[in-house]
Design a protein around this nucleic acid. Structure first.
Length: 231
DNA sequence: GGCCAGGACACCA
DNA sequence: TGGTGTCATGGC
């Protein structure tokens, strides 16, 4: 993994060599959309589970599954571990891919068991190490791992998801993979976990509105067209 | 009725 | 390592 928050140069260079800083992009997104207050969850357990369920799935479907889980387990890790895989699949059915996701959730709960379900024990563990351990769980890929690092552990990491890649393509930086974009975008020192959290939320909300697969018209950011953002 | 969603993985060349 | 098919539900 490349260093993501070590404060090297914070510029995004387009193919035409024009630049926009990640800080300016953040400011324009915030000005355009306002604060998003992600992640919608009342507990770290609900957040962790939602991070898996939302994979390639809209939040409406995830909410239905979360409601089922809340009713049955109150998101107690112990109660969820006591479910059979079949029962878990039934509860999370509305969010799809229940075969894969039930296995991933079981993997996550085995992972938290390694630190006695006590998130405070991760405080001294380096981000890279946590990320690697998460990636060993079947059903947890780079995006889910990073979402957990940012939203659960409040650490500054750039989440290079599909919307981010579409946005950066329009800004002149086309990339073919999650890792490639993540290697290009470096968060500035102004990004703590909270700001990285907000950046991802803003990019996704903007993306849903303007960067959907069949959207032809590209929206504006604080009055600028995307290509006008490049100085 | 088809497209899409806050991805990941197995399989193949 | 890079490209493609598969996993699945519910809303629009």
């Amino acid at each position: 993994m490349t260093s993501l928050h070590t404060g090297s140069t914070k510029i995004i260079k387009s193919s035409s060599n024009k630049i926009i800083t990640i800080d300016r992009l953040f400011d324009l997104l915030l000005e355009t959309l306002g604060e998003q207050f992600w992640w919608p969850a009342r507990s770290k357990w609900e957040l962790l589970i939602g991070a898996v369920l939302v994979q390639n799935t809209n939040w409406t479907n995830v909410s239905l599954s979360l409601k089922n889980l809340a009713h049955r387990t109150d998101f107690s890790p112990k109660a969820i571990r006591e479910l059979t895989n079949q029962e878990l699949q039934t509860l999370i059915r509305p969010s799809g891919f229940f075969n894969n996701k039930s296995r991933a959730l079981e993997g996550i709960l085995s992972w938290t068991e390694t630190f006695n379900d006590d998130f405070s024990r991760l405080k001294a563990v380096p981000t890279d190490k946590i990320r690697k351990s998460l990636l060993q769980i079947k059903g947890v890929g780079p995006e889910t791992a990073d979402v957990i690092v940012v939203y659960l552990l409040d650490r500054p990491v750039f989440i290079a998801d599909a919307y981010a890649r579409r946005l950066f393509t329009l800004l002149g930086k086309e990339t073919k993979s999650y890792e490639e974009l993540q290697g290009i975008v470096h968060l500035s020192p102004s990004f703590n976990g909270t700001k990285a959290n907000e950046l991802h939320a803003l990019i996704d909300v903007y993306g849903k509105q303007y960067l959907r697969k069949n959207t032809k018209e590209i929206g504006f950011l604080a009055g600028y067209k995307l290509d006008q953002l490049l100085d």
